[in-house]
Every structure is written in structure tokens, then in C-alpha cells.
Design a protein around this nucleic acid. Structure first.
Lengths: 228, 228, 228, 228
DNA sequence: CATGAATGAGGATTCATTCAT
DNA sequence: AATGAATGAATCCTCATTCAT
């Protein structure tokens, strides 16, 4: 819902229905674009960025190689759009989870946020890896600065919602630590730390613990610890 | 003699003096090997795995390109040995920090371990990134299974020391959570989560908090939370 | 009507007014064609044949890319027409200069021709380069044979006027060499040789002489030498 | 003779015989290099720079594609070396022709120089075209500045010898024009102008004159004209 | 043991041209 | 007539690895 709009490079045709040949052209363009992104998603997620050639994407999308370049300037750009896609999904999930228009208590809200993050990780492991790996290596250099900004902005949304929930928890006396940004950082770092550890086959083997269990424990430990 | 030893960076050569031409040959081999690893360390850490060619390494090591292949089968293998090197350092640091032959209380021991991990991260950011990035991407496939085992073994050392400290903390009543492995997992995940978050430029920007401060808070929160 | 006419840049359209929709269509076609040629002239002269894409031309002409191919079969054809355009201009300039309907003496006529050639070179350096470079490289193969013929025909006009002036000079005793075609060849080769040398940055640097001066000297030397 | 030495990138081993494996390596390298240059000469001269791929050169040289890049950084570099090769030959021919250690009169010397230039053109038409085309188009940008300098230097040799002969002609009263550089420019421009004209199929057709004849006439006309 | 010359598979990107609308 | 989306052939260059000396 949100994703489609926010990722569209051109358009901005928010008026829903379009009519005439111009609109059909535009719809076809959007369709092609989505075809290519879907194809890229498949092959990137399956075989990894480096192992995939632009030809592979073109074949999977059933278009010519040149067509891919008609919609995306570089291979990296395609990956960047998948990254944004993933971030969109995550942000959307978190928005629903935090639901600041609902009258929940802080404990419920924090739990819902934590659960939503875990679910996102479990349902979209490739997107999660993409988001976490972003900016590592020489990838960052090849990326449109606008995309970087976009990633930053969206990520800030997530952390700000968390911070807002933390403030509520402070009001309710659940959390006693002063600095809300630091408390939010601890929560994010702790929960994400579990995902990072267990998303890695080798480290998962070392920890030898069930993800749900460890994540749950971490949630309790953090909330408990933040409340002194 | 064993491979495990040979990848010690500052190899103690604790068996004293080797004599005769055979020993000189061996010493020269070890020297060459170290030269190459040192060179690889420099260029890999400076420019990244992909940007570096085997030629670069050979030039930096002042040996022929073929010589590099005399000591390491593939480019990936070299990186793997750097990874082991980093792990060696980390394990050595942790061993000193935990110092189970000392009669410290659990709180002190846990703190010392946490501080050692942070120091390692701050003093060897490239080694840390290498360790964390291990197994991501196409790297894992190209790696010698023996190295994988080695990494697993060493890492287990670290987690077992942590677990041992946790058990001591349970005995002393500092930690009330039942499963010591889970408690150790929470500690590792939490502390490492801070490092992961702040080792990433973009996320560091988002969190906008000082590393030492956040890491310290996390330590307190975790210990406090694990003690109910 | 004939292709030859259509490539006149400032086409005289000497057949007066065309009327009716048919004529309007035709005028519009001619207009589009000129738009494209004008655009091609700009971009080719500014950035060179190879650096320019058909898309660049289309954008500069403010037409669709397909439209370009409606008027010219290949990218090379467009260049060929620019070449003819340049040749048209040169021939027109020479015609005015030689002005065989005027009662000038041979010396004046030869001088006027020489000056006109120099002025063309100075006022239209890109056209001059185009004319001189013609047939070099792989360009010749991609060219319409009709264009080749056209170039040949026009060029012959020029040399024939020169020859006619030479014959007048023989009559007047200014030139004593027997074969008028050879004398004309010497004049053309000599004057053109100066332009070739000085139109080339590196060789201009080597010769280190002012164009006007060298050209003037050459003119005198040739006429003088041809008169024994 | 001169050429080989002056074009060698490395080496400078002017001591003739080399011994030992190091020298053999070096000789083999030089041999490979020459193989590639010879192959490039063939295919470039036959099909033109743009029509030739690096693969074509590799195949013709019977080496791998990578090997070509071991000796020359870019395709343009190869052409540049062919250009220098041609220039070397020309300069060598001119040196022999002018032979300033001989006690010839100016007329003889000028004639010998002119003839040598003509012979070079006739024996090495492709080299001549290469030299004349140099610096046109985008080629100049891709070239090593050192090569440009080299071309400049060599070319200056040629023009200086011509100038020296002109000065002798002034002393002997054969040439009365004041500025020797200008007189040399006229001679070079005139003779080269004939070659340019007749090296071009279309213009040769227009002029319709025998090269030897026109060149000879030009020589006489110029010398005669320069002497008043 | 040491070397470094040789290899050639591999891949991103461009662009002239076509053709359905 | 006009358009511009789609195509895919074409090409330069890199670099890990091998192997003869």
C-alpha cells in the first residue's frame, strides 16, 4: 500500500484511475518496472547480489537486457530499490504494531513493536539481511544519495516510534532510565542483537537456543532492566 | 606445527630454538607466510576484499604472485586466515579478561568480559567486521570446511567462558534466570547488538548516541534485567 | 524536388508558392527535416560523430527518436547530408568568388578564389573538417552511393572553375605550365595543404606560423612558380 | 634500426648481447610485444581502428586476450605505438635523405628530402594515414601525454631539417624569401598537400592526375616560386 | 622453492534500429 | 505521420589461477 507509492521514481499519479493512451502507457511502464523488480527480488534473494548478472534478471523478467537499463541505471540501483521496498514493509508493519491512535498501555505497545520486528525478520529474512547489510562494502559508493537519504528517513521513523513508546513507558513508570533516546537505543540494539546472532548459521549454532525463546527472554530482560 | 598454531599472529614459538637446515627452512616458510598475511591484512583492511587483487597482496608482501598461491590456495583462504587471526586475538583478550584463575566475584568478571569485548571492537574494528561479516554472501562457499570448524571451536570457547561466568553469577545470586546458556545468549546478543548498531555509519547516525555510553547502559540493563 | 536540391541548407524554393494541403504537408516535412539537420549539426559539430547518439539528435530536434529514422535511414546518412550541406556552401562561395560573368583579369580571379577558400575554412571549420575527413575510416562503407556521386559532382565544379581560371591565366601569360589540370591540381593541393597543416593542432604547433601569412605566401609562391 | 630502440618502453639495453635467464626473459617479452604490435599493424591497417576488436588482435598475435593487456594498457595505446613506429620510420628516412654530413648543394638536398617524403608515402600509405589522422576525433584524449610529446618532438626534427636545408638554399641564392620557417612551412604544406589530395580516393579521382607527376611539378613550382 | 608470464571466462553497459500503437 | 519502448549484439577490460622455467 504505502510501498508502491513511495518507491515510484516517476509518476506521483495519486489520483487512482487514469484514462487514455497516456495513462495506459504509464501503467504499462509501471508494470514492466514491477516485473523487473520482482525478477530481481527472486534472483538476488536466491543467489546473492554478486552471483547474479543483469542478464539473469532480464531473463527472469522476460525482457531484453537493454530494457532493464531502461528502468534502472545500474545493477546497484535495482538492489537499492529492493532495500527500500523491504524498509517500506518493515516501517508499515511497525506503524500498524505501534498504532499510536490506540489507547494501549506502554507495556503492550513495546511488546507489539518487538513482536512486529521479530515477525518481519521471520517472514522476510532476505529483506532483513538486505537492510542490515546495506552500506557495507563498496555498495554505498554506487548508490544514489537520494536513496541513502530515504533509508535514513524511514529508519528514523522506526526509531522515533520506539522512542515515543519509551516515553509513554516513562510516564507510566515502566522505564526509569532518563534519556529516552538511549533507552530506545538499548531496546533496538538488544532485540536486533538477537536477530543478528541467530540470522547467522554459525552463530546460531554456537548459541544453540531457539529464536523465539531468546527473543522473548531478551524482551523481558530489557524492559525489566530499563525499569531498574 | 598444527594449523591452529600457525595462524597465531604473534606466534609464541614456545618450543624454543629449532636447529639445522630443516628448521631454518621451516622458519623461513613461516616468515614468508606471515609476510603474506601481513600484506593481505594491510590491503584488505584498507581497501576491502573485492577491491584487492592477489597481485596487490603479492606486491605488498614483496613476493611473486605464484608464491602467494604456494601458501594459500585461494584469495578467500587468505581472508579466512585473517578471520581466524582476529578470532585468536579476541579469544586471547577474553581469556585474559575472564581470568578464571582469579578469585573475582561474578559482577567483576562479567564486567571485565564486557569491557574486553568493547575494547576489542574499538581496537580492531576491521577484525570485528570480518568476524561479523563471515559467512555472509558468497564467501562461505569458497571456504575450507576446516576453517569453519576452527571458527566454530574458538567461538564456542568465548561463549563457554561467558556461560561459566553466568553460572558463577547464578551461584552468587546476581542472575536469577534458570538456563545459563540462554542468559549467556542474552548477554552476548545484547552487547554485540550495540556494537553492530554503532559499527554501521547509517545506524550510528540514527541512534545518535555515544558508543561507550550506550554499551555501558546496555551492560547495566542486561545484568539488572537478568537478576529480575 | 530532387535530392540534390533538398540538401541546400538555405533552400531557395525558387518554384514560388506551393498551395493546398499537399503543399503544406510537404512544407512541414521539409521543416521537420531541417529541424533534424540543424540539431544534428549542433551536436555533431560540438561533440563529434561518435560521441553523439541518435537520441541526442532527437532530443535536440525536439522530435521522437523514431521520427529521425523517418527522414534519415542511418546515423551516417545524417552526417553525409551535413557534408553535402558544407560542400554546397563552399561551392556557392567559390561561384561568387570566381564570378566568371565578371571581366576580371586572371590574377584577380585566382586571388579571389584562393581568398574564398580560406574564408570558408575560417568561417566553417567544422564543415571543412567534415569535407576533408570524408571517406576516412569506416564511414565510406555506410554511405549511400548517391551521396558519393553528389560529392564527386560538386567537387568537380570547384576544380573546373579553378581550371578555367588557370586557362585564363595561361592566355594572359601569368601561368606558363602546359597542362591546366595539373596546374589547377598544384594550386588546390598547395593551398589546401596549408589549411590541412594548420587545421591540425599538433602540426600548427610545429609549423608555428600564422595561417593568413602562410596562406598568403603560398598563394604568391604558387602563382609565381607556375609562371616559371 | 633507430625505431626499435626508441619505441621500447622498458629496457634500454643498448649493450647488444644479453646473457643469462634474465636476459632471455627480457628478449621473450620484447618478442611477444613485437608479435602483438605486428598483429595489430595487420588488422588495424586492413580493417581500421574501430572495426578491430582487441580479441582480433589477440587472435592474430596468437596470444590470449589478457596477454595483450599485459603489454598495452588500452587499445588506443597500441595504435599510438604504431603511430610512433611510423613516425620513426619517416624520420629515419628523412635523416638519410637530408644527410647533412654530405656536401650536397641545396637543390639536391631539398629534392632528396622531397623524394624521401614521397617514397615514404608510397611505401607506407597506412603509416602515412595514421600520422595524418593522429589527434583527430576522440583519439587524442585516450592517449598518453608522453606519446603526444614524442610525436611532437619527432615531427619537429623533420621540420628542422627542412628548415636547415632552406637556410642553405638561401645562402646559395636558390631561395630568396626571408623567413626560413615560413619557407619550410610552404614546402611542407605544398608537398604534403599533394599527398593528402591524392591519398584520398575521391579527391584523387577529381584531380585525375598522376601522383608522381603532380608531386614533381609541385616540387619545381615551390622551389621556383620561393626563388622569386 | 620461487617466479611472473599467460590465460580466457566473465560482465556491466551502450546504442542503433525496429515496430506496435 | 509520429512516437518511444524494447531489443540484444557488441566490446573493452579485469583478475584469479595455472604452470613452465
Amino acid at each position: 500500500m504505502t510501498r508502491g507509492v513511495s518507491c515510484m521514481t516517476q509518476s506521483g499519479n495519486s489520483n487512482g484511475q487514469l484514462r487514455g493512451t497516456a495513462s495506459r502507457r504509464e501503467r504499462e511502464r509501471a508494470q514492466r518496472r514491477d516485473d523487473i523488480l520482482r525478477a530481481a527480488r527472486e534472483v538476488f534473494f536466491q543467489r546473492g547480489f554478486h552471483a547474479v548478472t543483469v542478464d539473469d534478471i532480464a531473463v527472469a523478467a522476460e525482457v531484453g537486457k537493454g530494457t532493464v537499463y531502461l528502468y534502472f541505471n545500474t545493477k546497484e540501483t535495482i538492489l537499492a530499490h529492493l532495500l527500500l521496498e523491504g524498509l517500506d514493509r518493515l516501517v508499515a508493519d511497525l506503524k500498524i504494531a505501534y498504532a499510536f491512535d490506540e489507547a494501549w498501555d506502554a507495556h503492550t505497545r513495546l511488546h507489539r513493536g518487538a513482536i512486529a520486528y521479530l515477525k518481519f525478520f521471520q517472514n522476510n529474512p532476505e529483506y532483513y539481511r538486505l537492510i542490515m547489510a546495506f552500506d557495507r562494502g563498496q555498495f554505498q559508493a554506487a548508490i544514489d544519495p537520494a536513496v541513502y537519504q530515504e533509508v535514513l528517513t524511514r529508519s528514523l521513523d522506526g526509531i522515533e516510534w520506539l522512542e515515543r513508546a519509551v516515553k509513554q513507558a516513562q510516564v507510566e513508570g515502566l522505564i526509569t532510565i532518563e534519556n529516552p533516546r538511549e533507552a530506545a537505543g538499548v531496546l533496538w540494539a538488544g532485540l536486533n542483537g538477537v536477530l543478528v546472532l541467530l540470522s547467522h548459521p554459525l552463530r546460531a549454532e554456537i548459541v544453540a537456543t531457539d529464536l523465539d525463546s531468546l527473543y522473548g527472554t531478551m524482551t523481558e530482560v530489557l524492559i525489566s532492566g530499563l525499569g531498574k
